[in-house]
Every structure is written in C-alpha cells, then in structure tokens.
Simulated scan of single mutants.
Amino acid sequence: MSRSGELVQWNNKGGYGFVRDGAGNDFYVHISKLAAGQLRPRIGDKLNFEIVSGRNGRPAASNVAVDTPALQTARTIRDVKRMPRHMSRYAIGLRTTAATMMTLLILLAIAADQVPVWLGATYALMGAASALLYRFDKLYALNGGWRVSEINLHLVDLCFGIIGGLAAQEIYRHKTVKPPFVATTWGIAIVHVLGLTALAMGWLNFALP
C-alpha cells in the first residue's frame, strides 16, 4: 500500500533514516530502497513509499520516491519540538513519566535522610549535561553535521544523566525509534529506578557523612 510522508531523520553517510507519515508513524528507510533514478533524499523532503516488512519484522519503507523536495533552510530545535497534529501538546509520554518518577524518588530519599543532597545535585547536573548532548545531536542530525556517538549518550545517561536523557528524548523526539538504542536506554532507566527505590524505601543503606 502506497503512503506519503516527510523525511524527518537522515544519516547521509550511512544512507538511512526515518520517514514519518501523516499519522505520526516513523518508518525506517534505506538508500537501497530508493526507486530507480532517485537522488539521495534530504531531511524535509516529501516522500512517496510502500510499506514492507524490514529487519526484525518491523515495517519499513520501500520503493521510495521524492514527491516534493524540501526548501534547503537550516532546521532548528523549534521545528523538532512542534507536535504532530494528531498529538495533544499536553500529552505526557512514557519517558517523561519515568523521568518524573525518578525525580520524585530522589526527593523522597533526600527527605527521609536516606541519601545526601549532593546525590540529587549530581543527578541534576548530569541530567542537564545529557539533555544538552541530545539537543546537540538532534541539531547535528537535522543539518547533516557531526554526531554525538551513541556510546557517549548511553555513558552519560548511566552516570546519573538518565533523567535528563529521557526528558530530552521526549522533547526532541530523538533516538526513540532504533530498537537497540531504545532497549539500552530503558535498561539504564530500570537500573536507576530500582536503585533509587531501594534507597528511598531504606532497603539499601547509603553511607551518610
């Protein structure tokens, strides 16, 4: 079945990206699936494509053709943060919920004198650092620039930056499709949720000064 959508992510070096249809669904697209004679697409291009079963049985785009080329103006974070029409601007996603839960657990643990205040400050500082990295990586992805490696994103998230990382993924709609990355992110989040829950409930002792 033929569909149309906008190319919202594109790695020109790797030759792959994601096209988003009118319902807000993202489909993986590879350069090998371009129709004969088609040039490399660019972010913002309106594409016509067919849906086939891709890797791991996930739907992917095939027989891709550029319908309307994008005007080549630099895209900004403001463009990314615009919500699709089918989504409410007040909708709260799972990543935001998880980040809020961890924040509340930290505050509860501090209030109960289970952890020192500096641990909460560490989460805040590293969370801000993680959010900035996601922001920069999204901007670089939009305009074909240098990218932040996925290993570095995961490392900062693991080192107490997971709250900011989850929030940034939600806000910028970045790194939310690729299965291995998503699975690793949620693995890190679960580790932190379990650890913070154990601290807040007093099941795990933290050596206070």
Rank of each mutant, 00 (worst) to 15 (best):
163 I>S: 01
30 H>M: 13
124 A>M: 11
49 F>E: 00
159 C>V: 15
88 S>C: 08
160 F>W: 10
30 H>F: 12
138 K>A: 05
168 A>S: 13
35 A>P: 09
158 L>M: 14
37 G>P: 08
82 R>M: 05
34 L>A: 10
14 G>H: 11
71 L>K: 12
206 F>M: 08
43 I>E: 01
110 I>H: 04
80 V>W: 01
72 Q>R: 15
28 Y>G: 04
87 M>K: 05
102 M>Q: 05
157 D>F: 03
132 L>H: 06
119 L>A: 06
135 R>L: 10
176 T>Q: 11
137 D>W: 03
206 F>N: 02
91 A>E: 14
98 A>V: 15
141 A>T: 06
120 G>I: 05
13 K>T: 13
204 L>D: 01
185 T>Q: 02
201 M>Y: 09
7 L>H: 00
148 V>Y: 01
137 D>R: 04
208 L>K: 08
9 Q>E: 14
113 D>P: 01
126 M>Y: 05
2 S>N: 14
39 L>M: 14
21 D>A: 07
186 W>R: 03
117 V>F: 15
183 A>N: 13
160 F>P: 00
147 R>D: 00
1 M>Y: 06
116 P>V: 09
48 N>Q: 09
141 A>W: 01
158 L>G: 01
95 R>V: 05
169 Q>N: 10
189 A>N: 00
28 Y>I: 08
71 L>T: 13
124 A>I: 07
174 H>Q: 09
174 H>V: 07
174 H>M: 09
16 Y>F: 14
194 L>D: 00
24 G>W: 03
9 Q>A: 12
17 G>H: 02
94 L>R: 10
101 M>W: 05
173 R>V: 09
135 R>D: 03
104 L>F: 14
53 S>G: 09
182 V>M: 09
192 H>W: 07
205 N>L: 08
186 W>S: 05
181 F>D: 01
198 A>D: 03
115 V>F: 04
191 V>W: 10
82 R>Y: 01
123 Y>F: 15
193 V>W: 04
159 C>Q: 11
10 W>Y: 10
109 A>D: 02
79 D>N: 13
60 A>W: 02
60 A>Y: 00
77 I>C: 08
185 T>P: 03
58 R>N: 11
193 V>T: 08
59 P>N: 04
205 N>G: 06
59 P>Y: 00
175 K>Q: 14
192 H>V: 02
86 H>L: 02
177 V>H: 08
197 T>M: 08
94 L>N: 13
117 V>Y: 12
156 V>D: 02
191 V>N: 07
80 V>Q: 08
50 E>V: 12
19 V>H: 02
99 A>G: 03
79 D>F: 07
77 I>D: 02
188 I>S: 05
155 L>H: 05
113 D>S: 14
83 M>Y: 00
185 T>W: 03
123 Y>L: 04
53 S>R: 14
26 D>H: 07
97 T>D: 10
32 S>P: 06
7 L>I: 06
157 D>W: 03
179 P>N: 10
174 H>T: 04
100 T>A: 15
74 A>P: 01
144 G>W: 03
29 V>W: 06
100 T>R: 03
172 Y>I: 06
41 P>M: 07
182 V>E: 05
42 R>C: 10
63 N>A: 13
14 G>D: 11
159 C>G: 10
143 N>Y: 07
73 T>F: 11
22 G>K: 06
23 A>H: 11
